[in-house]
């Protein structure tokens, strides 16, 4: 059963969530919308709205289309940056080995234990975030 909304609680909710009742706890919204018709509660919401309006002045730039495309592109590329660096390191090592020893096939020097981690990223191995 929904707890009855008191005027004190209405003020608390406006203090915490601001003047947009849609942001308030779902169970309180219907009663709050009713109560918001009272002049005293309208004043409470108007006060909260002044603060909300001020907060809205802080805007940040939207992502550029190029950045968004880069993120989509990262989904297509199966290799992370660290993995690519790792593979390029193997290539260089192989070339050097080839220069000194004559002929070493790159594929044969890759140890099985170096299988690429699904979680390898530029920032290190990353686990599930639950």
């Amino acid at each position: 059963m929904t707890e009855p909304l008191t005027e004190t609680r209405f003020v608390e909710l406006a203090d915490a969530y601001g003047h947009v009742i849609a942001r308030w706890p779902e169970a309180m919204r219907a009663q709050a919308t009713e109560m918001a018709r009272l002049p005293r509660m309208r004043a409470v919401l108007a006060d909260a709205e002044r603060l909300d309006g001020r907060l809205d002045l802080w805007k940040v730039d939207a992502p550029t289309p190029e950045f968004a495309a880069r993120i989509v592109g990262a989904r297509r590329s199966p290799l992370s940056r660290r993995a690519r660096l790792w593979w390029s390191g193997i290539g260089i090592a192989t070339a050097l080995a080839g220069a000194t020893a004559g002929s070493v096939a790159a594929a044969t020097v890759l140890p099985a234990s170096h299988a690429m981690s699904d979680d390898a990223t530029a920032f290190g191995d990353l686990g599930q975030e639950n």
């Binding site: 802080w58 940040v60 730039d61 939207a62 992502p63 950045f67 968004a68 880069r70 993120i71 990262a74 989904r75 992370s80 990223t121 530029a122 920032f123 990353l126 975030e129």
Partner: peptide
């Protein structure tokens, strides 16, 4: 992306770092 980048930008106060965080978030999502 717009919302996650905005969150990172407001958390970190730095646009380049925010992009790094947003990109990393999506890498984890994939």
């Amino acid at each position: 992306l717009p919302r996650l980048l905005a969150l990172a930008r407001r958390m970190l106060g730095d646009a380049a770092e925010a992009e790094d965080v947003a990109q990393e978030t999506f890498l984890r999502a994939w």
